[in-house]
Amino acid sequence: MLNTLKQVLAVSGVSGNEHNIAKTIEEMVGPYVSTIKTDALGNLIAIKEGKAGGKRVMLAAHMDQIGFVVTDINDKGFLYVTNVGGFAPEAFLGKVVTFTDGLQGVVSSKAPSRGPADGKITMEDVYIDIGTSTRAESEAKVKLGDTACVAHQLVVNGTRVSAPTMDDRAACAVLIEVLKAAAKPNKTIVAVFTSQEEVGIRGAAVSAFAEQPDEGIAVDVTLAGDTPDAKPRMAVSLGKGPAIKIMDRASISTPYLRDALIKICEDGGMAYQREVLPFGGTDAGAIQRSRAGIPAVTISIPCRYVHSPVETVDLADLDDCVKLILGYVNQ
């Protein structure tokens, strides 16, 4: 699992610009599936046929990540940027960022180094320095509309792993391991590595419409309530197993699917947690309201410090997610 995770963490893919990570995943899962394709919004769709007459289950993990997009270049060569996906700019000040072609830069802000008096900076204050002195120099390296994300870094402490893009590459790694391990599943797996989740669950919406699955399972990270004075107050901890989502702001899990997953955990003596998230949303929301409605649920990976450069998960939870999904597709 750690190796798979490392491979998908190392490649960038800001929303709308997922082709590099799509290519990496395509190479990793290609040998294990019967069909693999991309669509106009950048989704990567890998299909593994199940037994005849079995249900088609869409497994969705989004491969896009939050980042910056260049909106202007000033005459001294600094890049003005805005956010792709939602995050607090403070979390990324002083960080190294990487553009799609590997170019690196550093993030700073127009606000004084100790921060403005009210402690908040806005995206309008943020700029990226790529070591140039003129607009022409920068224009030779970067075009308006290019995207950058915080540079890859990995910390492994036992089973705890921290990196900038656990949301949602941890889930991509889970899906890759599922595809590798499901030799001959009973249900047909439509694994969609979705695009543009962070900007409004767009990839899942169009791929669910196109693929028309019978059921959908989104795999995504959720917040952990086990850090000091964590808000929101949530009963989800790292290392205590997959969190089966009851509801969040974008979807309420279809009751029979939620209960089926819980039953697999209980029958198999596997760890699991029940999750109610007072905000946020996953691809399950888009799948559920596609066409005339598709039953959908989310399996969450507990994750600390979501949308920061140190998103942290427990490898044991990832392994348990793989087991749970295999249990479902082999039913």
């Binding site: 669509d39 106009a40 919004l41 989704n43 767009r202 990839g203 919406a205 169009v206 791929s207 419409f209 196109a210």
Partner: peptide
């Protein structure tokens, strides 16, 4: 337009 049905560039 891009998401009214399947993906449209």
């Amino acid at each position: 337009i891009q998401r009214a049905a399947s993906a449209v560039p």
